[in-house]
């Protein structure tokens, strides 16, 4: 019998990393099998849509808030046209002189008619339906109660028919409804993340189960927990990236479609609810977070299973 060959000594004591394709070959079934990339894709798409909705709403709220914060509307409801015009002029003059007021604009009658046209029909007769006059005020600060009260007092003397309201006041309930929606969107994003992690956990466990003999061998040959975990992380990352990319595309397609629909609704409020470039960056980060969650979950699952071996 020939002498056995002598591999280079030091081979066994080396502790470099065992990774890359060589390591991945060990567990051909470690790829999250079958439906997993699709589950991840759907999760990512839903997350992207929920996040986009939340971001758009939050933009809408902050745009509208800024718009309305210093906005005050004065209505003068007076049946007699000459008297109404006189009160409007007096009220405008008094308001212009107030230090809290930045700008005063008497809303032209034509604009009012255009506003009311859908409800009252074209060429509405002034006498048939008495139209209120509107004055649009911009305050320097926000429309707090004290300022409003003071302005009301001033107006009472010169224009008894005037009614003064902060624009934010009548939108208050709308804002709180939208804020609830925002919380809902945030909760959805969190729930989706947890569900995705759970799905990956289950998949990683089944991949682990199918490869347990191989894992045990590598373990007994002196493979470290990290080495073995890395093999799985690699294939899970691959699947998650695939699912994430598909999910992002699906999500973005849905958002763009919805965006077009809303763009057709010619409303000042919805127009404020667009997405800024930071928001698009955030949305693009969603699949990256997904990959991160998947890889971390896979790693923790594998490490936990390995700790049960000596």
């Amino acid at each position: 019998m020939r002498k056995p060959p002598l591999p280079a000594k030091g081979a066994v004591t080396g502790n470099k990393r065992f990774r890359g394709t060589r390591a991945a070959q060990l567990v051909p079934d470690a790829r999250l099998a079958g439906p997993m990339p699709w589950v991840i894709a759907i999760m990512i798409a839903l997350t992207v849509i929920a996040a986009a909705g939340g971001l758009a709403l939050s933009n809408l709220v902050s745009d509208a808030r800024a718009d309305l914060a210093g906005g005050v509307t004065v209505q003068i409801v007076e049946a007699s046209a000459p008297e109404r015009d006189a009160q409007v002029r007096r009220a405008a003059r008094v308001l212009e002189q107030d230090s809290a007021v930045r700008a005063v604009r008497i809303v032209p009658e034509a604009e009012l008619e255009a506003l009311l046209e859908p409800w009252l029909g074209a060429g509405v007769q002034n006498e048939a339906v008495p139209m209120p006059a509107l004055i649009d005020l911009r305050l320097r600060g926000s429309a707090d109660a004290a300022t409003l009260q003071r302005l009301r007092g001033k107006l009472r003397e010169v224009a008894p028919a005037a009614r003064l309201d902060a624009q934010s006041a009548w939108l208050g309930p709308v804002f709180s409804a939208i804020t609830s929606l925002l919380w809902l969107a945030a909760a959805l994003v969190v729930l989706l993340a947890v569900t995705s992690a759970a799905a990956v956990w289950l998949a990683a466990r089944s991949a682990l189960g199918g490869n347990r003999p191989t894992i045990e061998i590598v373990h007994l040959l002196g493979g470290t927990d990290s080495q073995i975990a890395r093999i799985f992380q690699r294939s899970v990352a691959f699947d998650a990236m695939l699912g994430g990319a598909v999910g992002l595309l699906l999500g973005l397609a849905a958002i763009l479609l919805l965006g077009q629909q809303f763009a057709r609704v010619d409303s000042g409020m919805v127009a404020g609810g667009g997405l800024h470039w930071q928001d698009w960056l955030l949305l693009a980060a969603v699949p990256l977070c997904g990959v991160g969650i998947a890889v971390l979950t896979a790693r923790l699952t594998i490490l936990a299973a390995l700790r049960r071996m000596l």
Partner: peptide, 11 residues
Amino acid sequence: ALPLRVSGVRE
């Protein structure tokens, strides 16, 4: 080759 790869021996 597995034990050598686990030990980080170069290809």
